[in-house]
Amino acid sequence: MAFMTGNVLRNLMGKYSTRLYPIEIRPAFEAYRGELYNEIEKCIFCQSCARKCPSQCISIDKEAGLWTCDPFACVYCGICVEACPVNCLHMKSTHRHVATEREMIEQKGTPPKPKKKAADGEAAAPAAEKKAKK
């Protein structure tokens, strides 16, 4: 009649199936598509990611060298990562941390200059990189 008895008594003696979450965290799976980030120094601001994105969450200002992703619109599909021609987009294997207010993922880099102005651009690049790391 009560076929569940065996199961519950086994559980009573056995191990826990749950975790005390904030204290004990399961290591992330390697392939997990977590938070999106851009190696901004490699980025050429070609806009392929923004065009391919199904949720249109990436916006790029080519002039200012601004790469912005709205993490609240992002669906973590990883299409942009595959679309990137210079492989500068990556996904971390952990999810984005809990935030108390809405904030965008904003990264500032240097857009590639036309060939003749390349020399001027190099001088500005290190400063821009520092900003991006913040």
Binding site: M4, N7, F29, E30, A31, Y32, R33, C77, I79
Partner: peptide, 30 residues
């Protein structure tokens, strides 16, 4: 039948892990 509910969901978690490890997400594997 709450205990059966917990049991089934415990088993399901294994499949979620398989999805996450192989396809990158628990449900929307894309």
């Amino acid at each position: 039948f709450e205990s059966v509910f917990m049991q089934f969901w415990r088993i399901r978690e294994k499949i979620m892990d398989i999805n996450e490890a192989t396809a990158g997400n628990r449900v929307i594997v894309s």
